[in-house]
Design a binder for these strands. Sequence first.
DNA 1: GGTATATGTTAACACTGTGAACATTGCCTC
DNA 2: GAGGCAATGTTCACAGTGTTAACATATACC
Lengths: 225, 225
Amino acid sequence: MVKLPSETSGYHHGNLRQAMVDAATELARTGGPSAIVLRGVARSVGVTATAAYRHFAARSDLVDAVAERGYERMAKSMLAELARVRATGDPRRDAIERLQAEGRGYVRFALDEPGLFATAFEHDRFGTEIPAQYDWGPSPWGLLCEALADLRDVDLLADHDVEGGALYAWAAVHGLAVLLLSSLSNLSPEHGTALIDAQLEYIVRGLCSDLPGSAVPGVDGSDRP
Amino acid sequence: MVKLPSETSGYHHGNLRQAMVDAATELARTGGPSAIVLRGVARSVGVTATAAYRHFAARSDLVDAVAERGYERMAKSMLAELARVRATGDPRRDAIERLQAEGRGYVRFALDEPGLFATAFEHDRFGTEIPAQYDWGPSPWGLLCEALADLRDVDLLADHDVEGGALYAWAAVHGLAVLLLSSLSNLSPEHGTALIDAQLEYIVRGLCSDLPGSAVPGVDGSDRP
DNA sequence: GGTATATGTTAACACTGTGAACATTGCCTC
DNA sequence: GAGGCAATGTTCACAGTGTTAACATATACC
């Protein structure tokens, strides 16, 4: 007979790993990665602290599991914003708006779930390897690359710029998210969203506008208005 | 008679605060903020752990002191790169190169001193206030604003874009620094510096090139080559 | 049904930050 | 110079933390 996860028989929990990741996620949401304390998580799911070591080799593995969940939700946030853009008929404009929507979803997730965002990117360990690539469904990076490919398909981006452009956009968006949570955390929400919009505008300009002088141009005659 | 800081009389240390910040900085350099452990720092300067509380209200204050030192060194790194740019006679090109030099110094510092960089920006506390502005000499933010003002003075930037542009550039550079230390940490050094150069190029394009359609343009006729 | 294995538990260790009470030193005033 | 006060360090102590070793129990498989 297949045992349902719900029927906890007292001693054996059923599926403790899942329960611990759930509890740890909830803690991380409100308190960030440092709020994931093993003993507390174990206690909150009604189990002894050392039981955790049957499912995680160390606390950091539990944190990693929460981080992965954070990536998942971030991708969802990007997809949600993506679903809000409505086609205008102009494929170029559509491609731009899709890219910006993904960026908006990225930063929105950071602002809505600062704890999970911080957990996802807080690999405090210097020199230590990060857990390679995550392989569940659509990753934030994968989504971004698709958007850049779309931009290329409508001739707004050179072929050889797709990967570099993706890294540029990622860094620009990620940096804003991080700063909004730390150094700029006392900004008003309105100012915050204005900053996001401005950033997405700058990013598109950096990607899609080519200055005539190829390398470091003294900039051509097209001054400002 | 003025007592020299060097003459420790056994019981009284002389200037313990300074010594502890020094030791903590060294620990943070190699191990990041989490390597700053109060008892260890105290022991390493030959004093009991609780003695620290005569100079710091809590461990976090010691970390903050190290963070401030990190900001200081980052500014120095930016100034160092700034000193390397040589005037070309074209004031516009010079202004651009100065901005890029500052950005390079910013990211270089992050790569050269990942522990201090992480400590400077690791205000893990969510919702908690960050320690306002730092008031020692030239701050990274101040330097950046000067560079943007220079850009405006040579008509490469609109007046109302100075602050927004500075935030954009800061975020774009900061994001790259963070990613190079975390998700992109296994890149080769050459690839890393190439990425930095590319990012600085993109940033200037975003700042200094104006697309004809003001808002979200479908982009004008200037396709790709 | 009996046994191996997965999964929890208890006891214990070496750490951590931090507070209270006590001790020593140096400076300031008479 | 002598005495007292404030600054600075020390000793205990406590409540936490992650983690290991040895033991207990329930589940799955032959």
